[in-house]
Nucleic acid binder design. Structure first.
Lengths: 237, 237
DNA sequence: CGCGGATTTGACATAGTTCAATTCGAGTGG
DNA sequence: CCACTCGAATTGAACTATGTCAAATCCGCG
């Protein structure tokens, strides 16, 4: 399922350290029971599955590079995308309670992840307050994120797109060009549409409309936000 | 905020015992550190707030009787209802990670709850595997529930209503009458509409349409499901 | 250079909203 | 016991944002 190179406990000398969920896990285990976490670095080629709905859940994944989408396929075979994961994000949290993954996780681009065995996670939960807090934080953040999605899906198409773009600004490194803030959208229009619950045609039209009003300029995966204020106003109301 | 009668640790001799989240908490504390949980029984009059968005979060609430709605008020002042809580449900889970409630919790009818101080919850998390598992389960169930909401909001109005009714069947005691399964809807049409993200008029129309096709009969808060199979078929697709 | 998939554009159909009017139902007071 | 009232629920008619279907265009790649 994944081409991977296995190290012992890569967190120990990972520069991300405690800013990464894996680092916190590793710290917790080292302090709590002297054992490092059994973290495995993996590489996933574009479009490969990292896990599938229904698979028994044996690990969480921290995304180190690339991007993934998490989704379920509805009874009519439609992909319902619940979220995109970018570097730093933790995938699989919704499966912790159950023993099965509740959703599919698939690489949108070539993706690098760290695999954290669930057994380590459970041990760390028992022995470390810090880790417990970190995990609870991330889970309730996820709940908030879903609340946010529900909110956005109750708005107009333009507002959904605008809000999405603004959210991206906080999630990925953005470069300031002379034209404005430039960001990269790793997902296809189709996936974006499925995420926002719009027809691809609608997403497309919204982009052209926003370009027409010179709020932004876009060209495939690249998107330059020209008038951040106007975009915020649009998304906000 | 709440008219309440305070007991010492009502869980200890509560008949619900370990089927209730409070019971599990209490057990965990008794075993883990010999102290019972500081559970307080409360009564909330109809329409009173149990907590508000932004309040600092000091407790979870288990609903013992009645019904509540959890919601956020959007920038335009619209109530966005994320869920209804019925007896047995735990409210406030999304606030565990943060220290502030992220949503409002308001009694739809006169409501009885048990207040579980967050400090006890945190202690129990540290000392009991059982409690930790129970909490993680409930949190990931909540995530699944939100996934379900997102899914339903991508369906037609009829499907949303049908799915909602079917979901209610599993959540509250239902009586079998000669006409069919009878259930009680504690929420107003307005609240139901806000929950399903439909106009009240649409909800109303759907109910009449479903009655016309004799899938159900409804009269205010009462609703009799006449043709369960047809309703499932409708919701399922 | 040409193929195939992704994106964009156009024309039309429709589910659901909105606004307005009517009915219903539970309290309330005479 | 019977008007009244006021909010909730229902019904009707017209409107609109977005979906659907089809065609045109773009783009990367062999």
């Amino acid at each position: 399922m994944a081409g991977n190179e296995t190290h012992g406990s890569p967190c120990t000398d990972c520069p991300r350290g405690a800013r990464c969920f894996g680092g916190v896990l590793n710290e917790a285990l080292l302090k709590g029971c002297g054992q490092p976490a059994q973290v495995t670095r993996q590489v996933h080629s574009q479009r490969s599955y990292i896990h599938r709905q229904g698979d028994s859940c044996e690990a969480l994944h921290v995304i180190r590079g690339g991007a993934t989408k998490s989704f379920m396929t509805s009874s009519e075979g439609e992909e319902e995308i619940f979220g995109f994961q970018l570097p730093g994000d933790v995938a699989g949290l919704d499966a912790i309670g159950a023993n099965k993954y509740r959703s599919n996780l698939r690489a949108i681009t070539r993706t690098w992840s760290c695999r954290l065995p669930l057994s380590d996670v459970r041990t760390a939960l028992a022995v470390s307050d810090d880790f417990r807090n970190d995990l609870l934080n991330r889970m309730s953040q996820e709940v908030s994120r879903l609340h946010g999605m529900l909110h956005r899906e109750r708005c107009s198409a333009e507002q959904r797109v605008a809000a999405f773009l603004l959210a991206q600004l906080d999630r990925e490194p953005v470069s300031q060009t002379e034209e404005g803030l430039e960001l990269t959208l790793p997902m296809s229009r189709v996936d974006l549409a499925r995420y926002l619950d719009l027809a691809t045609e609608t997403v497309s039209r919204v982009f052209t409309r926003l370009q027409g009003r010179s709020l932004l300029r876009t060209d495939g995966g690249r998107c330059v936000i020209v008038d951040l204020q106007a975009l915020s106003r649009l998304a906000g109301a």
